[in-house]
Design a protein around this nucleic acid. Structure first.
Length: 463
RNA sequence: GGCGCUAUAGCCAAGUGGUAAGGCCAAGGUCUGCAAAACCUUUAUCCCCCGGUUCAAAUCCGGGUGGCGCCUCCA
C-alpha cells in the first residue's frame, strides 16, 4: 500500500504506527453554509480511503469533525437572528441528510468543536505553560510561531517568508504577525465560553489538534483534508500538537485536490459553489461519484458542462448490461477473483480510483461478450463487480431501482402533439409507407424530439 | 515577492526508467426500410520547450515557458 505524503512530497509505503491498526482524521466542514460538491468529494475520498484500508485488513478508526463555531457562523447568526449554536446544529442536521443521500459512510467518530471546549482550553493552557503561546491584553491567546522550529515544514515556507504576505487585522495584539489565534475573545452578544482568559471561543486550528489528542492521543497515522488546508490550517495543527507532545503528529498528510467549476475555483467568497443538494436532484449519487472519481484524488477536478450527464450515461450503460445478465443468468454464485485482485492492485497505489473506473469499460466489454456467447460466468462477473465496486459507492442498487430513480430525476414531459405525431408515424411505418414515416419524423425532430424504434414499439426522447 | 501543484491526441484523463490505459468526440462496420440505440473496429512514431544522465526517459537531473492554487475564510 503506497500513499502520497504531502510532508515528504512523495509516495511512501504505508506502515502504521501500530501494526494492523490505522488512526485517521480528516478535517470536515465548517457549518456556516450548505454542503457543496467539494465537501461531498472530500467526504467521499476519505470514506473510500478508510474502506480500502479496512479491506486491506487494517482496523481503522476514522474521525471527522464539524467546526460548529467560528466567525462565519457568528455572522450568519447575526444575519438570520438564529442563535449561533442552533444555526450550527440545524446546518449539521441538514448536511448529514445530504451526505446520507450522497451515500457516504459515517466515520467511526464524529467530533465537534463545541463539545470539546474544556479539552481545547486545557490544550491552550499547556501551550502557554510551555512557552509556546501567550495571552494578550485583549483576551485573545496567540501561538508563538517562533517557538516552534519546524514551523512551515508542511507548506515548505519559513517564518521570514510568511511575514511578507501576512496581514494583521485590527485589534490583534500579536508579537509576530505570523502568530495565530488559539482563543478569540468574545465581543458583546457573541456566543462564548468561560476561560482563564475571559469569555471567548476557540480558534479554528486548535480544535483539530485538541480533538485529535482526545480521540487518538499524541500521534496518528493519516491526517487528511482539502489541499487548501495545507496552509495555514494543517501547518498550525502540526505546530500546536508537536509543541505539546514533542513527537511527530501525523505520519502521513494527505490532501485531496479542489473542485473548480468551468475553470474557476469554487469558494465561499466567490459564491459559485455547486451544491450537493442540487446535483443530487438531477443525477444519481453513483453518477456524481463516477464523475468525481475519474480523476485521482490529488488532482484538481475541473467540472465542465456535461461531465455528470456523461457519467450518468456510463452508469446507465453498466446497469443495463447488469440487468440483462441478471435477467438471463440470475445473481451468479462464485464471483471473479481476477476483477477483485486487479482492483486491489490499482487502489494500493495511492488509491487510484481513476484506473479502477477505467477498468470497468474493459470488464463490461468482456461481460457483454460472455452474454452473447451464452456464458453463465457473466453472472459471476457482475456479482463481483457489484461487490468490489461497492467500495467506491457504485452498483449498490437494484437495476430497477436505479432506472426508476434516474427517470424520476429527469421527468420527460412529452407534449401531446409530439405523441400524436409519433403514433401517426408508427402507423405509417407499419404500413411500410416510408416517405410518410420519414416526413413525420422530420416534424417531430423540428419540435425537438426524436423517435427510436424498438422491436415492438417506439420511444420518444428529447433531443 | 515567497511557496506549492500542474503541462500527455479536438476535449477529459491514467501512466515515476523499457518503448503511450480508459472515456467523450470522429470515422468505418454489424443491425435497421432509413435512422437511433446497442455491439465490433480504427484514431498520439509521440507526451510544453531547450540541454543533460542512461543501452533505454512522458517518466530522473538542470534551465526555460504557460496554466492553476496557497500566503486572508475555504474540502
Amino acid at each position: 500500500m503506497r500513499i502520497y505524503n504531502t510532508l515528504t512530497r512523495a509516495k511512501e509505503e504505508f506502515i502504521p504506527l501500530e501494526e494492523g491498526k490505522v488512526k485517521m482524521y480528516a478535517c470536515g466542514i465548517t457549518v456556516s453554509g450548505e454542503a457543496h460538491i467539494g465537501h461531498g468529494y472530500q467526504a467521499l475520498i476519505y470514506d473510500i480511503m478508510r474502506k480500502f484500508l479496512e479491506k486491506q485488513g487494517y482496523k481503522v478508526t476514522y474521525a471527522r469533525n464539524y467546526t460548529d463555531v467560528d466567525d462565519k457562523i457568528i455572522n450568519k447568526s447575526r444575519e438570520t437572528g438564529i442563535p449561533a449554536d442552533k444555526y450550527a446544529a440545524d446546518m449539521i442536521k441538514k448536511i448529514d441528510g445530504i451526505m446520507a443521500e450522497f451515500d457516504v459512510g459515517e466515520p467511526t467518530l464524529w467530533l465537534k468543536a463545541t463539545e470539546n471546549i474544556e479539552n481545547i482550553i486545557d490544550f491552550i493552557q499547556k501551550l502557554i505553560d510551555s512557552g509556546h503561546a501567550y495571552p494578550a491584553d485583549n483576551g485573545d491567546v496567540y501561538f508563538d510561531v517562533t517557538s516552534f522550529k519546524r514551523y512551515g515544514c508542511l507548506s515548505n515556507r519559513s517564518v521570514e517568508d510568511m511575514l511578507d504576505g501576512v496581514r494583521v487585522e485590527n485589534g490583534e495584539e500579536k508579537r509576530t504577525p505570523a502568530d495565530f489565534a488559539l482563543w478569540k475573545s468574545a465581543k458583546a452578544g457573541e456566543i462564548s465560553w468561560n476561560s482563564p482568559w475571559g469569555k471567548g471561543r476557540p480558534g479554528w486550528h486548535i480544535e483539530c489538534s485538541a480533538m485529535n489528542r482526545k480521540a487518538f492521543g499524541e500521534q496518528i497515522d493519516i491526517h487528511g483534508g482539502g489541499r487548501d488546508l495545507i496552509f495555514p490550517h494543517h501547518e498550525n495543527e502540526i505546530a500546536q500538537t508537536e509543541s505539546l507532545t514533542g513527537k511527530r503528529f501525523a505520519k502521513f498528510w494527505t490532501h485531496n485536490g479542489l473542485i473548480k467549476v468551468n475553470g474557476q475555483k469554487m469558494s465561499k467568497s466567490l459564491g459559485n459553489s455547486l451544491l450537493l443538494e442540487d446535483l443530487l436532484k438531477k443525477y444519481s449519487n453513483e453518477a456524481v461519484k463516477f464523475a468525481l472519481l475519474q480523476t485521482n484524488y490529488r488532482n484538481d477536478i475541473n467540472l465542465t458542462d456535461g461531465v455528470f450527464g456523461e457519467a450518468e450515461k456510463h452508469i446507465s450503460e453498466f446497469y443495463a448490461v447488469m440487468e440483462k445478465v441478471e435477467n438471463k443468468f440470475g445473481k451468479g454464485v462464485s464471483g471473479n477473483a481476477e476483477i477483485d485482485k486487479r482492483f486491489d492492485g490499482v487502489m494500493s497505489d495511492d488509491f487510484n480510483t481513476a484506473l479502477a473506473l477505467s477498468d470497468l469499460f474493459g470488464i463490461f466489454k468482456e461481460i457483454n461478450k460472455k452474454l452473447s456467447a451464452n456464458d453463465r460466468t457473466a453472472a459471476d462477473d457482475v456479482r463481483q463487480v457489484r461487490e468490489t465496486y461497492s467500495l467506491l459507492g457504485l452498483f449498490k442498487k437494484q437495476t430497477k431501482d436505479y432506472f426508476d430513480e434516474v427517470r424520476a430525476k429527469n421527468p420527460e414531459e412529452i407534449p401531446d402533439e409530439v405523441k400524436a405525431l409519433a403514433e401517426k408515424r408508427w402507423q405509417a411505418k407499419q404500413a411500410k409507407n416510408w416517405s410518410e414515416a420519414d416526413a413525420l419524423r422530420a416534424k417531430i425532430s423540428a419540435l425537438g424530439y426524436a423517435v427510436k424504434d424498438g422491436k415492438d414499439g417506439y420511444t420518444i426522447v428529447k433531443e
